[in-house]
Amino acid sequence: MRLGDPVIPLSLERFRLLRDLINRRFGIFFSDDDRYLVESRLSERLIHLDLLSFDDYYHYLQYHQDGEHELERGAEILTTNETYFFREEYQLKAFSQEILPELHERLINKRRMMIWSAGCSSGEEAYTIAMLVRDSGLFHGWDVRIFGSDISARMLAKARRGIFGTSAFRATSEDLQRRHFNPAQGSLQVNEDIRVLCHFGRLNLLDEEKIIFVGRADVVLCRNVLIYFDKRSKSRALSIIYDRLNDDGYLLLGHTESLLNLSTAFELVHLRNDLVYRRPKAGSDGF
């Protein structure tokens, strides 16, 4: 939405209708406090579709033949947040200095490792993980797969291009930029040796049927994604992630997130640099 574009008013009643629709489909939850965010972000869709009110928009989502796709577009707009490379450095330190060496030891016979960045947005997190894996020097010749998933096709297209503007590098040292990026179109492009480790796909975190395509992961990063979900959806998503993790597989949440009151299936692991969650070995009680 451009500055100066009109904002179409969204009543509390209509906001709740829309919110519940999005929640049922994607598990993403907006509190009443988010009404103005929804109003301002979705107004551009109404203008684009030539709709005059949120009543019309709700009707469109429910009954128009393109309603299903529009719901996805709407959710995409509401959940898109800017992210950047090497976000939450202390956690990444734990990942590279403690988790990766342990995985190397544990998986050395298979020489295969899968890391899932759930809700990867435009790919910065997935590429960050790839850089840490490369720089660790532990996995040369391994079959390493870093899979980034998101519900936004637009974000995935950006992730696949691998070209990022300066704001994505606010936490990236010059040395890292020099080693892993090349100038391209006035921005920086991820080097090929990093890009080849990363795969991307479109997934709704609550779509249990499609999630099976991810296979089993050794680490799942689901950072600052569950914050959009209501409690029930968070529990469902965690159950799905639990199923996708290998035994002793790690779950990394955002620094403000925890599983308190959500799941007891994971065990909390105290690393030197951070607290992370882990799926216990088979035989332990799960979901």
Partner: peptide
Amino acid sequence: VDTISLAMTDE
């Protein structure tokens, strides 16, 4: 199979 399976999520 695993890699191709991932591609089933391609946009």
